[in-house]
Amino acid sequence: MLKILKYSFYDLMRSRWSYVYFLFYLMLGFVLLFLNNDVSKAVITLMNIIIVLVPLIGTIFGIMYCYNSKEFTELLLAQPIPRRSIFLGQYLGVASSLTFSLIFGLGIPFVLYGLFMSDAIFDFSLLLVTGAFLTLIFTALAFNIAISNENRIMGFGYAVLLWLFMAVIYDGLFLISLVIFEEYPLDNFSIAATLLNPVDLSRTLILLKLDISALLGYTGAVFKQFFGTNAGLVISAVMLLLWTIFPVWRMVYVAKRKDF
């Protein structure tokens, strides 16, 4: 598996898109910091970018890689390597190269700016960790879509739809249901609904750092328990982990039973 990972990773590291992605984050980091001169503001803008763009790029990149490396996969399938290794290796190759671009692309400007001297370092590391998780999750989801859809056009369609749903539509439905059922106690519902969408989950995780003052304004006891203590942080982190593990597990499960 490690060998497959290595080759996928090297392969991607040499592809133009990895550079584009890396340079994009690098430029973003520099622009945010050196034109703005304000770490707090940069962190807020970054959050918006991370929860919207990272899933999109993870999905598109993942699905593109899957379809483009179809022949490569078949070459590997005829080799004495278990399927689990082939798919896990490729997945980890893509996910790690994306994570690499993200962390270094954003990390370098922040380090140059003197992040280690600033107290925003915790917020910033949280952002990067969340971004890394979102990359892992959405790449895994994309692999799942690709593995279940031979038709590329359909696969792409589903991938974009998935992103659109998670990033925008889900919150719209969430909001509507909250407003419609506002007479009922909605604490548990809102927290559950948040945990069920990795984008919302990541956003909440970052909110716990950035907007804790506002979150504590709400009276619900469950909310208070969730936001006011470390419970929120722990539960969110565990859910993110589950969100990563489950699609990866399903990918391997399906791959093992699939015909090529």
């Binding site: 080759y7 040499r14 490396s69 022949e71």
Partner: peptide, 9 residues
Amino acid sequence: PQIADFPGN
């Protein structure tokens, strides 16, 4: 394999 297509990079 029938189609000889390999990772392009």
